[in-house]
Simulated assay, not measured.
Amino acid sequence: MTLPSPVVTALRCSLCGDPVEPAGRTLRCPRGHAFDLAKQGYVNLLHAKVPAGTADTAEMVAARVEFLGAGHYAGLADRLAKRAAGLRPNLVVDAGAGTGYYLARVLDEVPEATGLALDVSALALRRAARAHERIGAAVWNLWEPWPVATASAELVLNVFAPRNGAEFSRVLRPDGRLLVVSPQPAHLRELAAVVDLLEVDERKEERLDGALAGYFEPVSREEHIERLTLSPVDVCRAVLMGPSAHHPERLARLGEVTEPVEVTASFVLSEYRKLP
């Protein structure tokens, strides 16, 4: 597998900031820094260890692939893709892309677009690199300055992932847009009866706007709420694919779930305009 050419054009050397070019199964900058393309199709641009408990584990990735593959969040993915299609982007950067599920759905809806999947988990990006033929995947820590050219993208996606407002703004073109999906406090709240889940901040939307202030202004915000019936297996997957999986002590009662559980999926899709 190779990276799509628009992705290579947008990427920068993570050591010196120069443009990179493909050389066989390597990306190389003019100063000689080289980054090998993994056989699974992604490139690792990190040059530092990832802090423990930050990246998705193999178990988390497997749970996410199976849960999303069952279609539980398909409605959210469709809504995100339709909103993205209205913006008609050429390059879409998915910050915290995970397995590439949402980015692939966006690219299905926007045939002229190419996607760059950024995530700190190489295990997740193995999936993302194969999720769509127009996805190029690169391992990176979103809290660090991104190895992506300034003003190279028309759209940044951020779905349940860390938010680096400065980098969102830098990589977007002047008329670029940011689409953020975040859970509401009611999201999967019913599972709290059987699992000690990490709670969603009641002031999450307020904090979201605050984190982006100075870089973006809100354009619109819409809720996506639906009822889901999760089998015991899918209850486990829903929990294991999220941040609670980094806290095994919270999962002690997960095996007690033996019957389907009715839950509420509750998200907010926010669109932001880049400030001048």
Rank of each mutant, 00 (worst) to 15 (best):
F168A: 03
V8P: 02
A97S: 11
R221A: 15
A151M: 01
A137S: 14
V92M: 10
F267G: 06
E144G: 01
L125D: 02
A23N: 12
A252D: 11
L275P: 04
L125R: 02
T2N: 09
E205I: 14
S5K: 10
Y42C: 02
E217M: 10
P185Q: 07
V43D: 00
S121P: 06
E217F: 08
T9W: 07
L37M: 11
T229G: 12
L155T: 05
T99I: 09
H246W: 14
E206H: 13
P145H: 05
P147M: 07
A211W: 08
L87R: 12
S152Y: 04
A131Y: 03
A62R: 14
M60C: 07
N158D: 05
A113T: 02
E256H: 09
E112M: 12
E133D: 13
L179A: 11
V239G: 13
P145K: 03
L230F: 09
V93A: 07
A34S: 14
A113E: 04
D36H: 08
S244C: 11
R189K: 14
E190Q: 15
H246P: 12
G176E: 07
A81V: 10
A34M: 01
L76N: 06
A161I: 03
T258L: 13
V219R: 14
G24Q: 09
A113N: 02
V7N: 01
L275Y: 02
A85T: 05
E202F: 01
A62S: 14
E249I: 08
A85N: 03
V93K: 02
W146G: 01
V235T: 12
F160D: 01
L212V: 12
T9G: 09
A124M: 03
A85Q: 13
E262N: 06
A151R: 13
L118G: 02
E217G: 15
V171I: 15
G69F: 04
H247E: 15
R130A: 15
V110F: 01
L27R: 00
R207C: 07
A84S: 14
L188W: 07
V20L: 12
E167D: 09
W140S: 04
E66P: 00
S231E: 05
A84C: 14
I135S: 04
N158T: 07
L76W: 03
V8R: 01
I135L: 06
C13W: 00
G100I: 10
D196P: 08
S169A: 15
S270P: 03
L87V: 14
R134W: 07
R88F: 04
E133G: 04
D108R: 12
S270N: 05
P260M: 04
R88K: 15
A238H: 12
A62V: 03
R134E: 07
L275Q: 13
A245L: 09
T9C: 06
R127D: 12
H187R: 09
V8A: 01
A137T: 04
E59C: 01
D36E: 14
P147E: 12
R189V: 14
G71E: 03
V257D: 01
A149S: 11
E217T: 15
